[in-house]
Design a binder for these strands. Sequence first.
DNA 1: CTGTTAGCGCCTTCAG
DNA 2: CTGAAGGCGCTAACAG
Lengths: 350, 350
Amino acid sequence: MNRPLRLIDVAKAAGVSRSTASNVFARPDLVRPTVRAHVEDVARTLGYAGPDPKGRLLRAGRVNAIGVVLGEGLTEFFADPYNQEFMSGITEACDERGAGVSLISAKQEQALRWNIDSALVDGLVLMCMAGDTRLVELAHRRGLPFVATDTDPGPEFSSVLIDDRGGARLAAEHLIGLGHRNIGVLSLEGADDGKVGFADPARRASWEYRNTRERMLGYDGAFAAAGIPPEGITVVESLNVPDAARSMAALLFDRSPDLTAVLAMSDVLAIAAIREAGRRGLKVPEDLSIVGFDDIPAAATSSPPLTTVHQPIAEKGRRAARMIFAGDRPQREVLPVELVVRESTARPRR
Amino acid sequence: MNRPLRLIDVAKAAGVSRSTASNVFARPDLVRPTVRAHVEDVARTLGYAGPDPKGRLLRAGRVNAIGVVLGEGLTEFFADPYNQEFMSGITEACDERGAGVSLISAKQEQALRWNIDSALVDGLVLMCMAGDTRLVELAHRRGLPFVATDTDPGPEFSSVLIDDRGGARLAAEHLIGLGHRNIGVLSLEGADDGKVGFADPARRASWEYRNTRERMLGYDGAFAAAGIPPEGITVVESLNVPDAARSMAALLFDRSPDLTAVLAMSDVLAIAAIREAGRRGLKVPEDLSIVGFDDIPAAATSSPPLTTVHQPIAEKGRRAARMIFAGDRPQREVLPVELVVRESTARPRR
DNA sequence: CTGTTAGCGCCTTCAG
DNA sequence: CTGAAGGCGCTAACAG
């Protein structure tokens, strides 16, 4: 394999100057048709496929691509339906714009830094899955425009968020309105320490992840308004994957056998809870009401179809990407959520 | 926003040469600690975050990222569980290697060419969803190493394939072995012409897509061996998305009401067929046996769990990516498939 | 160890 | 319309 052809090789072979050759590819209208045809011909014979984007890039200063920082390993990433939706939104905005998308994974903490620093992109969308702010710091260092999602990076940076607290409150109010008083919470992780299982009030107070904290605050707000002491609520934290969620649901049911309803902080958790309930012979919603959060596609097709808090996941991605392209000053968008009542909730039996 | 800092600005401010400054970041061990500390200090004060990857790239000639050419729009891409699996494999290989992944979409035919030509990557993995060879041509023009998947690009290019024909044959033999003689086929699209619906033998003979053709050949082989005339089989083509698949399943059932079994060329098609059967009051597998292809995660959890042909989707991606990194001469890998018998197949009633 | 020099491949003034 | 020259930001080779 011989040294790759450069523009100048083509120019020489065609007997024209570099810039003429460049124009043939970049601005063909500036070149006399006969010359253009000749240069193109020579390029073809030589096997020159057109200007190398690497050179163009340096010159132009722009890559015409954005990076999506995943905040977790790529491998698990695609398994989560939430991420699929989100990526659809991102990529749609990029398609509109003719821009590319690079995936920046965070398999290892150390590599993450390097990955962010060396990514060939014009801007970064941060998927702060857990609502932590570590990614914000790294992105800030890199010095590229960036937009955080699902975390609040402070007023000096851009972000797209949803009203987690409001949505959670809607979910809790729905159950309370149906007459439930004995409600358990199946929670997302609250911090980056790998702890799962029962979360007492002290633990809850120490949660770092914004999503988790805000959703809990939403639930608590509704409990308090209904005169239910939030401290008395059983809360169990779980990884947001089906298998783990199922065993944490089991833990929740074991710990509080008299629950009539469960607030799950994600649809993945909720669907796992439905399955676990089924395994125990509990019918949903007759014996147990369950409310999810997110409204992933599977929520509509689970059995029973899931009552959940709809958030515009794809829209979040779309907005974030567009925000980068627009390049305005820092701004913060909070997208609305709404309760979608399906068939996993009903009045309690007792 | 002032002009971004360059390495040379830092060097000047620190009173050292460019290359010393460069070494501070790229090969710190070559620089005297005191000098290094000083330069780092100056960089920090100035707000210099480290060398710009754009410059490094041009110098190094390598991007350290591969592109995945999707062969369809990004938006639909993430909705398909097959793609999710495949990407997991790709990204795993990239994680191993510390390389990045760029997504190259094919929303519009014209843009595709440009996207491929201007992608900042060291190599390309082609997802020839439909088994056509259009992408191969474009990738070849670009002049970067590439690996085709799910299509046969000919011996001069690398590829990773599965044994589509063998797998399809296994599926058909399974049904025949159970005693089915009256079998319908729910097929993937056979060509890029948007045609769906009943496919007569002439139509089948004109199919371009490798996957579709090979799988049909596998079915036909089993039919012929069992003395069932392949020409008599009812075949219906469908887009590989749930809604379309369901109406094509309906068409198939309407057209051949006495089927006892269906061979679906994908799990998405098979699951849609199960649903449509259910809507008509046909029980699977008692009234109708259904076999899928791919073994996507949903196949194991559908009701009933789907008998299907397992193919190592993620492994395919992993191999393709590794092949690019290895940079060997063109090679062709054919991955094995196996029949996974679950609960969607049984002996026919009659 | 440190500084000088020479590109990586391209594009864009600016003269002719 | 064409050609010459400068530089995008960085690093590897080579002297000091």
